[in-house]
Design a protein around this nucleic acid. Structure first.
Lengths: 144, 144
DNA sequence: TATAGACGTTCCAGTAGCTGGAATATCAAG
DNA sequence: CTTGATATTCCAGCTACTGGAACGTCTATA
């Protein structure tokens, strides 16, 4: 018999909000927790491990849906590893796309910053557009 | 007098869903559109420009809140450029953090993939954990 | 002129993954 | 016996839209 913990200590141990655990239960990602006589949720090590697994998968940016499927497959007796490698492949593609987009975004913002430094005062005072820094970028983009 | 356009053509021109324009109006990001007798929204070039500005700022990953403030400052007669440079600075920091996190994530997922290839069959068949690929990563992380 | 279909309108609800708050119950310590 | 920390449920909101239902409007053609 392992020692049972209430939701607060478990959440603190895992570095999350207790509400997150209740939420996972609510959407069926974890089974309904065991309760004390007075209705408090209590968790054993296996429950904590399951939540920890979810959190690690979340760190890898898997969606709760995907995590749920992995868990369900496991419950069905199948080792989910092959399924997971497929998910991982897809995740990698998504991440690469995100990184590329962010890098481009970064360049564009640096562009904006550079322009802010070199912009001449009379342009700043001119009131014909909402914001030169952003509008000019669009104009330059059209030219290019 | 410029030609007025209905919401559909405007949305197509800008490459967005008409609902997005109604949404921007609903949250007050753009003023209520002029209407035809029958209640159809119509837009002039200035309106379209304003929406286009919002879309460009969104491409730079500004929140609608930030964009609203920029627009409001502009309405107040102040050039928002200085305000924008401040926002851009903050955006850059956020983006850098995101890129760093994604790169780390990428490495971890590649790690998982590598492990998937070299993992031995007896480990796959063992059913003691939910998913070796993800769990093992956590174990290795603890060791490191 | 009737009608089809392509557009427009409003309103409600849902997405992901939580998080905050209100109203209420439980529990341990002083 | 009260105080404070914790727990419970339920409702609502966050971002930035998007989908769908139910309905109105406009144009073109049979």
């Amino acid at each position: 018999m392992t020692k049972l913990k209430q939701i607060g200590p478990v959440a603190r141990e895992l570095g999350i909000n207790p509400k997150t655990i209740r939420y996972y239960e609510e959407i069926g990602l974890i089974p309904p927790a065991q309760r004390t006589e007075s209705g408090y949720r209590v968790y054993g090590q296996a429950d904590i491990d399951r939540i920890a697994f979810i959190l690690r998968a979340r760190e890898l940016d898997f969606s709760l849906d995907d995590i749920g499927e992995i868990l369900a497959l496991r419950e069905g007796g199948e080792a989910p590893c092959l399924y997971v490698t497929d998910l991982v492949q897809k995740q990698l593609a998504v991440i690469d796309a995100k990184i590329a987009a962010l890098n481009q975004l970064r360049e564009e913002l640096e562009d904006v910053q550079r322009q802010a430094v070199t912009i001449s005062l009379d342009v700043i005072v001119d009131k014909e557009c909402v914001c030169h820094l952003i509008e000019n970028r669009a104009i330059r983009a059209e030219i290019a």
